[in-house]
């Protein structure tokens, strides 16, 4: 079976590779409710992308501005320790976010991260340069 998925808001449908049978009216919750929070993650928007963000670790300071301003919540976060960890009043758990890579399953390639990075630690490259 193939699932028909919408592209954009207008509801234009096209066949997608990932397969899921459309359920019948007895199999879905009543009233249009969606009970699986955040299940949009099953819908990969990464194939909208024509430019891909490339991280340049030497320039990155882990300021996390790219994470803050990503419209698609697709800058991954790694947790690291505060340099002051162990001092009074500072938790011993990781308490600072660190750049953890781009989630290319969802990145639409808008390039805001590259545009706004104060350290020019992100570059946008054409998607066709990549073969994966």
């Amino acid at each position: 079976m193939t699932e028909q998925l919408k592209e954009g808001n207008g509801g234009h449908t096209h066949q997608k590779e990932h397969k899921q049978k459309l359920k019948n009216w007895k199999e879905i919750p009543i009233g249009g409710k969606i009970l699986e929070a955040g299940n949009s993650k099953e819908y990969k928007t990464g194939d909208w992308r024509t430019f891909r963000p490339i991280h340049i670790p030497e320039k990155c300071t882990n300021c996390m501005i790219c994470w803050m301003i990503c419209p698609d919540s697709c800058v991954n976060v790694g947790g690291v320790d505060d340099p002051n960890k162990g001092k009074k009043g500072v938790s011993d758990k990781p308490n600072l976010g660190n750049f953890g890579g781009f989630d290319l399953d969802y990145c639409k390639g808008c390039g805001i991260c590259a545009e706004e990075c104060p350290f020019k630690a992100i570059e946008m490259k054409e998607e066709k340069e990549f073969k994966d």
Binding site: K6, G8, N9, A37, G38, N39, S40, K41, E42, Y43, K44, T45, W48, R49, N62, C63, M64, I65, W67, M68, P71, D72, S73, C74, V77, G79, P94, N95, L96, G97, N98, D103, D105, Y106, K108, G109, C110, G111, I112
Partner: peptide
């Protein structure tokens, strides 16, 4: 920001807003 980055994400990816919205 780095502290905020460890808080839960309340809007998941996979939504279909335009790129750059």
């Amino acid at each position: 920001i780095r502290e905020l980055a460890l808080t839960n994400e309340r809007l998941a990816p996979g939504h279909r807003l335009c790129p750059g919205c």
